[in-house]
Design a protein around this nucleic acid. Structure first.
Length: 764
DNA sequence: AGCACGCCGACT
DNA sequence: GTCGGCGTGCTC
């Protein structure tokens, strides 16, 4: 009986849209399975392929004469057939090249390059080093050890270890500088480092005794969420549970118990977290509960370490995989549960091909495995909320489990809004309003800490000529240049170019366009705020965190340590301070300019602003002392701002949903974006026009479809490439990726690059 | 991606 | 009359 294998060929082109079939020679039958990497003769040349299906039946619709035998097996199976179907689905759903989708499924370090040796061809790529297997554990006396105030790294390590022993490699990957901290702690006798906890031959006694106990009591919300997840698992159809819980409501404990139940049924689990929240403590919580049954996949692991973690999952040694976006493709069999934490995070959308959304891809994988999908968030995406309201999406049930209570006694911070228009009328030209100044003084006087958030998204300092109105722009990009006062430079945030510059009242100032000397600086930068703070609070420790001060390796960490160790300090920074920051003695959070991101020409502007404010507001008063939040805005009536102030998310969601429905935006429609870029402006223009014409021809008369544009991208020129795009709105049931791919195939796009983005998040 | 097949201009 | 341009299409 002859056998046949269906292969996805690793040839980088959109032209290959389907697998090709090859015969399996008898002598290779034992080695060929779904997930294998094989070598074939493809139109006279060697090509690498991945087996997506194996069958006893000859391929249909192919001349049997043409079916060639596959030549060699290059690597054993890396994925199962559910994952193979996921790869095929992604290629179609996201109009991505097939080979790019399948590369996601390969182990770290495997390349496509092959070289000819004595025994035929072999895959390039060195076999990864055996990764170190040193484990770090707290000693008895270490449990009571309190690190010095400024030893943030040590504290991070200890927080991670409090939940159970960890691999040194994991600690180091997740927390830079952990190696040093561990060495220091070992000297003090606080921790022990041993290689006795060999993977696969675990010292059960030391590990299980170190496992964190389950809390005895769950909140009503946690119990409800768990039973909803249990029902979803029983349905075995990819059912989704949205765990809608405020910060601190115990979502992680829900995940942990849901995973325990899944493992007890002999199935496996995948947990996705945003890269930024993959901290030592997060890893520790999972390790603490599941010991070495957990694999960690993280972009900061070395290739060898990642390969090792991957191999542990493939061989069944670990049945839980925790990691960022790409952990979704870990080689786990029989997946029963997938968790996507912070499901609203935009980082789940990949911004390079394949432009997949991890939440949507997780939903498809859950469906393919008959697993349950758990989405967690304190500010769920509009998509998830709407699907739960509808009760289903793509034929699969979606339910929302609400967890409003916080275990313990933490109280919500008092949020007040400062109307900056009044400040302007009162001749206060400072970026800090009178109420915020007062609050800063009080907080500092009490020896407590403040955090000031500068919402720089879509906003920065720039130079403008008062005479002719000209704003210097980048010659390589279409963006206006950002002015850096400290270094006296104009910088392009798109391509990174920098020029020395002078601003009024410097006597050397000259407007590049009209020669006037009234070229002045506008907008508020972190430097300006820092300067104001120094004037307001002379002698107070002020830490500034932005792209400039965190560029150096480890600078991020260092600045946080500095802030942590200084009583009465103020931290000034951009978005990056909103997430993951958890200092108990911060009692004041100020948002300097809440509304700049509201004005962006992006339909998700309000949602993002709301999310950011909600998140930053949660940073106040996490310890014993109550916190307060001051939000400065020129738009105090916008629901994204009033809803945060009133702790009324429902009001925001009601407003935002109405806007989206009105304007035909997601979650009520699908949105596709095709961007054509080229160094040749006319060529980009011609190609994008043809794409738009094809799309119009393909969708004419179909209800719910609209083709908008073409128009210049918001960044009309970037890195010397001209960029134009077409937007497509389609009904929720539409096969948007297939339609976009088909239209683009019809167009001769040589000399340009065409980026298809299905369910686009970033429309810049 | 490669490499065939295929139909129009300047050469032995 | 042929050699060669690279435009279109196929590869299990």
């Amino acid at each position: 009986m002859a056998r046949f294998a269906s292969l996805v060929l690793d040839i980088p082109t959109r032209a290959l849209t389907a697998p090709y079939d090859y015969a399996v020679p008898e002598e290779l039958e034992g080695d060929v399975a779904v997930g294998c990497t094989v070598l074939v003769n493809f139109s006279g040349r060697p090509a690498v392929g991945y087996v997506v299906a194996v069958s006893d039946d000859a391929p249909e619709g192919v001349d049997p004469e043409k079916v060639k035998p596959l030549e060699q097996v290059l690597a054993p199976s890396a994925f199962c057939s559910a994952q193979a179907r996921l790869g095929l689905w992604m290629a179609r759903e996201y109009a991505a090249p097939l080979n790019a989708c399948f590369r996601l499924l390969l182990p770290a370090g495997q390349t496509v390059k092959v070289t000819k040796g004595d025994n035929g061809w072999s895959l390039d790529g060195s076999v990864p080093d055996a990764p170190e297997d040193r484990w770090v554990a707290l000693t008895e006396k270490g449990r009571d050890f309190v690190p010095r105030a400024n030893a943030l790294r040590q504290r991070e390590v200890l927080e991670g270890l409090a939940e159970g022993p960890q691999r040194l490699a994991d600690l180091a990957a997740v927390s830079p500088g952990a190696r040093g901290a561990v060495t220091a702690l070992e000297k003090k006798g606080v921790v022990t480092v041993s290689s006795s906890l060999k993977t696969g031959a675990v010292d059960e006694t030391s590990l299980s005794s170190a496992r964190a106990p389950r809390p005895r009591v769950l909140t009503q919300g946690q119990r409800d969420a768990l039973s909803a997840i249990a029902r979803a698992r029983e349905a075995a159809d990819g059912s989704v549970v949205l765990v809608d819980g405020v910060t601190g409501s115990g979502k992680t404990e829900v995940y942990l118990q849901a995973i325990e139940e899944t493992l007890a049924q002999g199935r496996t689990a995948i947990v996705l977290v945003p890269e930024i929240s993959l901290t030592a403590q997060t890893v520790g919580r999972f390790r603490g509960r599941f010991g070495d049954e957990v694999s960690i996949l993280h972009s900061r692991l070395s290739t060898g370490e990642r390969r090792q973690q991957w191999e542990l999952a493939r061989t069944g040694h670990s049945r839980v995989v925790v990691g960022a976006r790409s952990a979704l493709f870990a080689p786990l069999d029989n997946v029963g549960l997938i968790v996507v934490d912070e499901e609203h995070e935009q980082s789940y959308k990949q911004d390079q091909a394949p432009r997949y959304h991890a939440r949507e891809t997780a939903a498809e994988l859950a469906r393919l495995h008959g697993a349950a999908l758990v989405l967690g968030s304190a500010t769920p995406s509009m998509e998830s909320l709407e699907r739960c309201r509808e009760g289903s999406w793509r034929g699969v049930p979606w339910v929302r489990a609400s967890m409003p209570e916080r275990p313990g006694s933490a109280v919500l911070p008092a949020v007040s809004v400062v109307d900056m228009r009044e400040q302007f009328r009162d001749r206060n030209g400072s970026p800090l309003s009178a109420p915020l100044r007062k609050a800063l003084l009080e907080t500092h006087a009490a020896g407590e800490k403040s955090v000031l958030l500068l919402n720089r998204r879509g906003f920065a300092s720039f130079l403008m000529c008062r005479d002719c109105g000209c704003v210097p722009t980048c010659p390589h990009c279409s963006t206006s240049l950002t002015y850096h006062e400290r270094t006296r430079e104009l910088a392009c945030h798109t391509c990174g170019s920098r020029w020395p510059a002078r601003a009024y009242p410097d006597p050397g100032t000259v407007c590049p366009s009209c020669g006037s000397r009234y070229l002045g600086a506008y907008g508020i930068g972190t430097q300006r705020v820092e300067d104001e703070l120094r004037a307001l609070l002379p002698g107070a420790p002020i830490v500034r965190m932005d792209a400039d001060t965190t560029k150096a390796k480890g600078a991020h960490q260092k600045l946080l340590e500095e802030f942590d160790a200084s009583p009465g300090a103020v931290l000034v920074g951009t978005q990056m301070i909103a997430k993951g920051l958890d200092f108990p003695d911060v009692t004041l959070v100020g948002v300097v300019n809440a509304d700049t991101s509201l004005k962006l020409p992006d339909f998700r502007a309000a949602e993002r602003t709301y999310g950011l404010l909600e998140q930053v507001a949660g940073r106040a008063g996490r310890g014993e002392k109550p916190g307060r939040v001051l939000i400065q805005t020129y738009w105090p009536t916008h629901p994204a701002i009033t809803s945060v102030a009133q702790h009324n998310r429902a009001a925001f969601v009601r407003y935002e949903m109405a806007m989206r429905r009105e304007a035909d935006y997601p979650p009520f429609t699908r949105l596709g974006n095709v961007t054509v870029s080229s160094t040749n402006e006319g060529l980009a223009e011609r190609v994008v026009t043809q794409v738009a014409d094809e799309l119009r021809a393909a969708t004419a008369g179909r209800p719910g479809w609209r083709v908008l544009g073409p128009t210049d991208c918001l960044k009309a020129k970037a890195k010397d490439r001209y960029r134009r795009h077409v937007l497509v709105k389609a009904p929720l049931s539409a096969d948007l990726g297939a339609v976009l791919a088909e239209a683009c195939r019809e167009v001769d796009s040589r000399g340009t690059s065409v980026a298809i983005d299905v369910d686009a998040c970033d429309l810049m």
